[in-house]
Each structure stands twice: as C-alpha cells, then as structure tokens.
Design a protein around this nucleic acid. Sequence first.
RNA 1: GCUCCUGUAGUGUAGUCCGGCCCAUCAUUCUGGCUUCUCGAGCCAGGGACUCGGGUUCGAAUCCCGACGGGAGCACCA
Length: 460
Amino acid sequence: MDVEGTPVFRFAPGPSGPLHLGHTRAISLNAEYRDVYNGKLILRIEDTNPNAIDESAYDLIPKEMEWLDAKPDEIFIQSDRLDIYYNDIKTLLAAGHAYVTSTPAEEWRDLKRNSKSDKYRDLSPKEHLDAFERLLMKGSGIVVIKTDLEDPNPALRDFVAFRVVEDKHPRQGSNHRLWPTYNFAVSIDDYRLGITHVLRGKDHLNNTERQKWIYKYMGWKEPHFIHYGLVSMPDTLLKTSEIKQKISEGVYEGWADCQLATVQALARRGFKSKAIRKFWIAGGIKEVDITFSWPNLESVNKSLIDSKSKRLFFVPNPIQFSFETPSEIQKTAPFHPDIPEWGVRSETISSNSHIYLSKDDISSLTSGDIIRLKNLCNVTFHDDKLNYHSIDNIKGTPIFQWVSDKNMNLSLHYPNGKKDIGLVEDYAIKHIQETVQFERLGFVTLSDSKVNLTAFYLHK
RNA sequence: GCUCCUGUAGUGUAGUCCGGCCCAUCAUUCUGGCUUCUCGAGCCAGGGACUCGGGUUCGAAUCCCGACGGGAGCACCA
C-alpha cells in the first residue's frame, strides 16, 4: 500500500441498525491498515437520509467497532455538518460546476440517458445560487453536479448532490429540508476529514468516478481509492431492513438471535473479534468477487479458542439409567485434555446414582453391549440400567459422554433455529458467559438465563 | 441495452506487475487410513485448479488478441 505520513482511514456506514458480518470486512481491513501503518481510523456516520435511520445505531456502531478491536480514533456524524456541505455546494454553483433544477425526476433521468442537457443546466451561476437559497426554504428541486453528458457510461452523467426531504430527522429535527446525497457528502468529508485511503467495496467503483469530479472542480488532491471485490454470503441474511422486519414479526428474538449474522449474534455465540479480523485479512483486498465460507471462518475461530475452552459433558435428549456397581467409582475428567493445570471434574459414582445418556448415542445399542462412560468405566448396557463391567479402556468400545444426577437442565440453540434440550454437568454454572466445548458435540457459549441454562452453538 | 470491474482446486488464498526456480503455495472442505478415555476429536496420507481458443516465445498461470463465465452501476438510497 502506498503510504506517506500518517494514513487516515475511515469506516462510513449509514445508521440503519446494528452492524453485521457484511460490515466487518470494511471494519477489519481499515482497522488493520490503521494498526499496521500507525494511522487513524475515523468513523463517519452517514445519516443524510432522514427516513432510513435507526437511532440506536449511533451508539451501537461505535460499541460494536470496539468489540471488533477497531475502536475509531474519531467519530463524525454527517447530519452535524450540513453547513459545510451547503458552503461547498455554493462554491461549486458559483463556479458553474453545479446547477439547480426542478425538472421532474423521470424526465430528468430520461434526458441523461439520451445525453441531453436539462433546460436549467446552463443558466448563470447567479441564478443557480439564488435558486439554491430558495430551495433551502421551500419549493421542490434538486442540486446537480455537472459531469460529462457525453460520458459513454450512463452511470456517470450528472449526479444529484442535494434533494429535498421534508421528514423529521431523528437528530436534527426539522431544521433542514435540503439534504446532501451520498456521493456529495462523501467527497466533501473524505477531503475535509483528511482521509488518505478510501478502502471500500467494488460496488463503489462508479461512485468513485463521480466523486472524482468534485475533487477536480475543487482542485483537491484525491485520496487513494482502493476497491475490494464483493462478497456473497449464501444463506446469510444481511439486509438490515429485512432483519428488523423479521424481529418485529417475532421470527427472531432480537438482533442477537443466534440465527443471525449480526455482530451481536456472532459475539454471543462465541466468535472472537480476532478471528473475524484474521479471516478478512487472509482474504485480502483483491478486486475479485468471493463467496463467503462459514467453515473457513469457523476454522480460524477454532484455532483461537480450542486451547482456551474448558470441556464439559452435555447429554442432549437424555435417557435415565440406574447404575449398578460393586463399589464406588471416581470420575476424573480433565477440564482440558492438554492442560492438566486446569484440574479435573470429579465426582463419586455409586449404585445410588443415575446415569443419563443421549438417546442419539444409544439408539444403535442392544442389550448386553459394552460401552464406555467417558472418564469413568466400562459398563454393560441394558434397557434401563448400566452394570459396571471394568475400569480400563477396551479397544473398540464406543465412548460416550454422560451425566449423573449432578446435572442441570440446559437448552442448546443452534444457528439453524433448532434447539436441543438436555443435561449438562453442574460445573457449567461456574462458566456462564464462557465458551466451552461440549465433548463430541462442539463449542458453545454458555449464557445466563433466569429460568434455566442456555447455550449457543458456535461450531465443531 | 449501455458502462465498468473480474476470472488459479468445492471455498478462500500464494504466484501474474519484472515469462523459466510452478508437472503451481497454504488453509479449509472432501476421501482413505491410523489412533482409542472427544471416531462430530487427534494424527497421517490422498484427491482436487491455472475458464476456453488462438498468438508471441526456446519456454506462458504469468505477455497479446478473441470468446465465454461471474459481479456491479446506470436512485431526488447509502
């Protein structure tokens, strides 16, 4: 990357709701470059469309960035900066680089499609400045940046800089009716905030070309524009508006519902911000479009948490067995197979104890089979009881996790919406909010729930 | 339709600028084997790609041309 001095990066979302997986790429990449080059990362909230704003996003976005280890160095909110935009457009109007028109939208678009000039386009700067002042107060119309009407790319011919939105703005109330559009506000801010590197998705390629017109007219030096390819995320709902809709319909319990790919949900399931960061960095910033892969992300996460997660037994769909043994037996199960310092989960099992096994595990067993209760002993399986068989491992014996009466109810929620009800060792209560591994099942994050224990499935 | 971007295994990625060290890297997935107190774990092995067709060259994933494929934009959204 081309860097001189202190590079300044930015993340510039619209405040339509909490952040999701899709946002994390821009955040991770920008934050990584900030860190590596000792630069700055600016968060700029782009709230210039009064009717696409979720007020909670103003607080949530900085918090979620912080969770992602991407705490912004500075935060700007575009709706606080309208005077700046007004000033700059006046400069452009005065220089004849922009115009005000009241031509109806459809008609105006048609003219552009045919490379034709709007009838107001060539009025004098004075007349446009007056029209602009009027538009601030009343009337209808738009302010347009002149480009090249003959541009072969129809997307690049004259673009809107301001339009009238009468709706009340959550932060600014009804003080303003003339709002800048994305392309205008972005150009002005990227320059005035000293952004040196604009790192964003390829979908902005045309926007970049539009924004360059403003830099050119203002005589400003352009930042480095870098575009990375688009990511398609199959089976992952990332449209904020749609998520919001489904939450209100009760399809999801909220933004942190573990079926969602919001930052909140990922965090609650136990994804590490570092894993997300590493994943996107490994992806790089090429302009090729890519397909997102959960297994790849999960693998990164797993390598990060494996040696930090305690092991516990969880028995989904438990079946109760009585247990018969000539003498008491000691369960000695390490909290982690490779970390003896963490100690063991131990308890004494006698003939008074019940043992619970998962229905899924025993479905293929027949009476008389020998199985091993992990970290305890071998038993002979009968329809409703287990008889002590021997203590040492027997080659080829299936090994199952189990719980005794020292258990707690737990419901395990999967990202696909399914739920397992089962029993977990009571050690679980000491590890609320932690990510642990349910042996033979996968990593989960334990969550406090007033009624009974809940866990969210992370990955294998 | 117009314009722009892009094309290495199922997925992601290295190599492409400055042609030979690439019968193409790493990770993940998949398959097989081994292992036994996670067989939904661990270990090992294997399969799997330069989109296609021309050209330049002693030599091309790398350069040129064409075709085809994928994506985006053409909003008074961001």
